[in-house]
Every structure is written in structure tokens, then in C-alpha cells.
Design a protein around this nucleic acid. Structure first.
Lengths: 183, 183
DNA sequence: GTCTATATCCGGATAGAC
DNA sequence: GTCTATCCGGATATAGAC
């Protein structure tokens, strides 16, 4: 689309594959075919690029949670899971996990942004679980926020651990979560 | 004890706090009071230091799983959980999670080592769960390896996510796991 | 075993021409 | 909006004296 969005998309790919501290303006430069200095025209610093990247994830999360508010809880949670599944297919981890391990190496503004993203994801999933429990579509005994914590940490961890054990373990975990709340 | 082990311990602290790519020989130098070049006498490269660090975790994991093989499953799993709890108290994440996000930036030998560590942790926890299920101390319907996957990803994710949401969320997750298998 | 000194490379960032 | 050229700091790593 625009150079600006191209930069964000490449940065996104790199952060989810290799981590925030391992990706450089030179990497983006090679992938995009413009010089390092040109990237600074769009993003004065690595921090501002990182913030734009997180902002895009926040935007996408809000769209995801809003777009099918009236659909059935099972559909909404499958949509949520499909995000993680597409990360797995690309060999990537999720942004929250990637940035959480590097958190204390980043500037405060970016730390705040990533906390904000985590909070949006957690409360969006909490809502889905709450609705599903009320409607009888989901069964679980924990309170919805706690259950949302269990599920997000499972998925986030599954993306990371399955890099080390076996790709199939990711799908095993995803399947087990679903079975546990729908049986 | 020895300079060598001092270096490993400081590196350990730094990797668990800031990540592998964010820590440097200069950081260790400052903390330990010897010059950068002296560190290279003990570890020719960052990779060899990383390998020694992982080897220490493997050693500790083996000790943990061996030392109380004859104790009750509930005690053994509490011992396992206490490792993660001490990480939380120090504001750290677990090594497997920290290195998994950076995995594809590291040399192959180190990737192999970390996979080995993950496998040891997973099978050690699987054994505990298997024994606990047989003895009737634990109740869960998944097969033991799958349950071990669910629990390790919960704990690993809890250390990361609770940096962003609230420290208390870590303990909430830990408690919920325990209640779910012992009720 | 630790030091000083240095090599080499790569990171983010800026100035100014086009 | 992209380029060339350059700066500066920090990274891993090596050589050789003590």
C-alpha cells in the first residue's frame, strides 16, 4: 500500500520471528529495497516504529473483538484462536510474548503501549468467555478473567514451546483448550 | 565460587531479565568487576557462554526431578512450581521462554541445547503428573504429556504476561493450575 | 587469569543533495 | 520521499604484556 505500511509490515514479520532487539533498520532496508536513511523519514526512531507496530496490533484486536460481537461465542473464540494459528503457520510467536521477554530493554512509552495491548486482548477474551458461559455454550468453573488468563498464557506459551518440542504440540494445546470449555 | 561460575550466574540473571540479545560482555564486566577481555578467557564466545548457561539449567532440572522421586506427587509438583515462583519474585521470565522468542537469531548448537532443556522439563513434569494420576493424588482427563504441555505453557506465559497485567496474575494462574489437578 | 589496546563490524541516527 | 555520506556508540572478539 504505502511505504509506511510496508515498513510496519516487514518490522512486524521480523519482530515476531526474531525478536525486537534482533531486528534492524538494515533488515527492513534489504527486504523493502529502500535505504536505511529513508526509513527514518517515516519513523524517526526505532521506538516510534515499534509504537506504530503495536498500534496496528491494537487496531486489529479492536476490529476482531468488535466485528462479530453478535455472533455465537464459539465462533468468536475460533476467530480469536485463528490469529495464533496463523502465527504458528509462519513460525512466529505472538507480539505480547515477544515483547514481554524484552520489556525491560525498551523505552517507557513502548512498555506502556504493550501493556495496553495485553489489557485489550485479555478483556476482549474475557468478554467472549463471559458471554459463552452465560449462554451455556461454554463450561468452566473459574471466573472469566482468570479463564482468559489461562487461555492466553496457554496459547502464547504454545507458540514458543512448540518451536522447541514439535509444531504439532501447538495444535494439541489449542484443541485441548477448546474441548475443555465446550464439553 | 569461581570466576567462571560467577560469569554464568550474572549472565543468567541478565538473560532472564532482559533477554539473550540484550545482554553484553560489558554488562557482565561491570557487574563482576573484571574487564571484558577477561571474560573471553573463560568463554571464548557468547555462544559458548550461552551453552554453559543452558547446561547449568539442564543440570539443575535433572537434580530437581531426581532428588525427590520417592516423595509424594504433590510435593514434587510444588517443588517444580517454586522455580517459577522464584523467577517471578526476581522479575524474571523462564529461560525456555526467553530463548524461544530469540531462537532463530542463535547458532544451531545453542538451538539444540535449548530444545534439549525443554524436552527434559517436559518429560520430568510428565512423569510427576503420571505418578500423581496413578496414585489418585491428581485428577485430570488429558494424557499426562498433554497436561504437562498445558501447565508449562501456563507458567511460562504467566511469567511473561504478568509483567504486563499484574504480578498477582502469576499467582492466580499458579493457584488455578493446582486447584484443577487436586480437586 | 587479568590487563591494555585494538580490530572489526553493525547498530541507530543525522545532514544535506537531489 | 529517497539518496549518499558520515557520525558515534556499542557489540564480539583478538593480540600480547604482566
Amino acid at each position: 500500500m504505502s511505504t509506511r505500511s510496508d515498513i510496519i509490515n516487514i518490522a512486524n514479520e521480523l519482530v515476531l520471528s526474531k525478536g525486537y532487539n534482533a531486528f534492524s533498520f538494515a533488515d527492513i532496508s534489504k527486504n523493502l529495497g529502500i535505504k536505511k536513511a529513508s526509513i527514518h523519514y517515516h519513523f524517526p526512531s526505532k521506538t516510534t516504529l515499534g509504537q506504530a507496530l503495536i498500534a496496528q496490533h491494537i487496531q486489529e484486536a479492536n476490529v476482531l473483538f468488535e466485528k462479530n460481537k453478535n455472533k455465537k461465542p464459539i465462533l468468536r473464540i475460533q476467530d480469536f484462536f485463528s490469529i495464533y494459528e496463523s502465527r504458528k503457520l509462519a513460525g512466529q510467536v505472538c507480539l505480547v510474548g515477544s515483547l514481554a521477554t524484552d520489556l525491560y530493554t525498551m523505552e517507557q512509552v513502548i512498555q506502556d503501549d504493550i501493556k495496553n495491548l495485553a489489557s485489550i486482548i485479555l478483556s476482549g477474551l474475557t468478554d467472549i468467555l463471559e458471554d459463552g458461559k452465560s449462554s451455556g455454550d461454554f463450561q468452566f468453573k473459574e471466573d472469566p478473567r482468570t479463564k482468559a488468563l489461562m487461555i492466553t498464557t496457554n496459547l502464547l506459551g504454545a507458540l514458543q514451546v512448540s518451536r522447541l518440542t514439535a509444531d504439532q504440540d501447538f495444535y494439541q494445546i489449542k484443541q485441548t483448550i477448546l474441548e475443555n470449555i465446550t464439553s
